[in-house]
Design a protein around this nucleic acid. Sequence first.
DNA 1: AGCACA
Length: 260
Amino acid sequence: MNFKGEQPMGFALFTSAAAAMAAKDALQNLMFDYETNSVLRAEMAKKNLFVKRGVTGTGAVAQAFDQSKRLRTAGNYTPSHYAPPGAYGAPTPASWVPQSYVPPGAPYDPYASYSMPSLQPVARPVVTPVAPAGYMPMQNIKDNPPCNTLFVGNLGENTSETELRGIFSGQPGFRQMKVLRQGRSTVCFIEFADLNSAIAVHNNLQGAIVTSSDRGGMRLQYSKNPFGRKRESVNNQDGGAPGVPGVTTSETTTEPSSSP
DNA sequence: AGCACA
């Protein structure tokens, strides 16, 4: 290899430790330069990336700081502002780094207005109160019941299919993707192997920025018509009788052959 | 603010 000791490196912040580990495994040993046979090596960082959101509004570019450097330079550092690390697993006290910094009076929750009553209590990543780099706040007003296929909206007309594929094809459970051009906007369908994979991506990549799109973050919804699911006739065993579906009261129960 | 393909 050409590099000796001085190798380029980078850090990426994920919405949850689980998501970070999934990405790490997905990208591990990925060959990113076929000419030099350069292979990507991914590790969990020793410290969490501290991300500060720009103050100027929607177009502001997020800036990332090394948490350790920030701790060194921070003036009045009040640990009382830090919340317990929630679902990140019990960290050893020695290596514990404050995870959820809540700016006093300015809590920021990109998923604040998002609620899905029909969602089953599946493990959702703890929402980071500060937007990660590369994400935009995204309102997801109307959504469909969770299924294994995601609908991607808020994509500009010249959104690169290659970029979308790069974003989604590495996600756990990814099956296939279809891009649909609709005049001045683009939509995209992604099928996953199972419901949980779709839910994870729906939550983790909500509002993620697609560079080739000119509309900021993408909107992730569950598809109305999942991949490969034909509209199947539901269990209608009552022969299509209108009104009350076959309610069986104790009085009307018929014995098969009570007569001689 | 837009849901195709089987």
